[in-house]
Simulated assay, not measured.
Amino acid sequence: MAVAPTLLAVVIALGAALLATGIVGLIRDGRRIATPVYVTMGLGLIAVGTGMLLASQGHPVPLIVIVAAAVGVLLLGNVVGYPLLMVFLLYSGATVLRRENRSLGNALALLAGIALLLLPSTLGMLAPPDTVRTDAAYMARYAVHLSATVVVVYFGFAFAAFTAASLLYRWRRIRTVPVAVIVLGSGLINGQVPPLLAARLRRGLGIQTQFQGTPVIITSGGQGADEPRPEGEAMRDYLLAQGADPATVVAETESRTTEENLRYSRRLLAEPSSPVVVATSNYHVFRAALLTRTLGMHAHVVGAPTAWYYFPSATLREFAGVIRDRLWFTALSIAVLIILAVTFTLVIVPAIGPGTT
């Protein structure tokens, strides 16, 4: 059955609207996870709609190419990408535990690699028999398997969108001269600035130098229970030892979390809406950017380099943090998916008919 050209035109127009929304969002701000989703969905709808429209006019080659490309990407992702990602996570996870302290946060890459290793067999164990039945046991197993599958797909899609948005954001340039550079704390070791925090401070000092020393540097961090002095003071001392002008470095010493880093540092500005640059580690850039957007700050976040083996676990920890920050949305999304999976099981499966394979 041919699809009406009017309907295809609507599909193409919807794709163009989504693509435009995504591009405008990326250009204006970039601090949203949804923007790369809009771009991807827009391109997909435009490609499929255009291909089907041309096919209806006797030119099937573009549609064949689009379908072949989509199938090729899916096959490449599953056959090549999935195993490579699993091996990389296992290797980087083992490396970070060998080189750094053994903690749950540092073990996330290893745990994710193990999860990917076990996922296919786990979903296979949950899968119902190939022959459709309508008894309660079969229906329950079908619903559980379908629910688990859609939830896994949901988190995979969410992580892909988070990663894409993070990469796109890091390519953005600073467009406004900042009045301050806020350097986020990450903890002291024996009262001294450790390498990871030192990299953040050097990044902040580099931004100040880039703008001819105009922005004030705010070193942000309170005093933890195991720290002999406030982190912000230690960070300021480190910058002064690196040659920073004492008149352009201010310590914020009350914050305990990233959100407090930003809130309390903003209080030190003459105008809360003034443009600022926030310096942190590269894996933490996008989550910090999301927080600045939530707080209504005119901010651009930049990152300092991190060891490659540390990056996967840290990125997974940041993703978990974003999920936690949006816990109600995540819980609601999962609940809706499970309801849809159960509804499909109760309504569609019996309609397929028992004995079907």
Rank of each mutant, 00 (worst) to 15 (best):
G93L: 00
L90W: 07
A69E: 14
P60E: 01
A94I: 06
A69G: 13
P62S: 02
L63H: 00
A94R: 12
V79T: 08
G93P: 04
S56P: 08
L90E: 10
S56T: 10
L90R: 03
P62L: 02
L53R: 09
L74N: 06
L76C: 07
G72L: 11
G93F: 03
G58Q: 02
L97P: 10
P60M: 01
L84K: 11
L76D: 13
Q57N: 10
I66N: 07
L97A: 12
S56W: 01
L53Y: 09
A69R: 02
A69D: 13
H59E: 07
T95P: 10
P83C: 04
L74P: 01
V80R: 11
L63R: 00
A68V: 12
P83V: 00
Y91M: 11
L53K: 02
F88Y: 15
G77P: 00
L89Y: 06
V80I: 07
A94E: 12
L74S: 05
Q57I: 06
L97Q: 11
V96A: 05
P60D: 03
V67Q: 10
P83A: 01
M86R: 15
L54G: 03
Y82T: 03
F88Q: 15
H59T: 07
T95F: 11
P83K: 04
G58I: 03
V87I: 15
A94D: 04
P83N: 06
Y82L: 03
Q57R: 15
Y82H: 09
A68M: 09
G72Y: 12
G77S: 00
L89T: 14
P60K: 00
L89I: 15
G58L: 03
V61G: 00
V71Q: 07
I64Y: 13
V87M: 14
L54R: 08
G72T: 06
L54T: 05
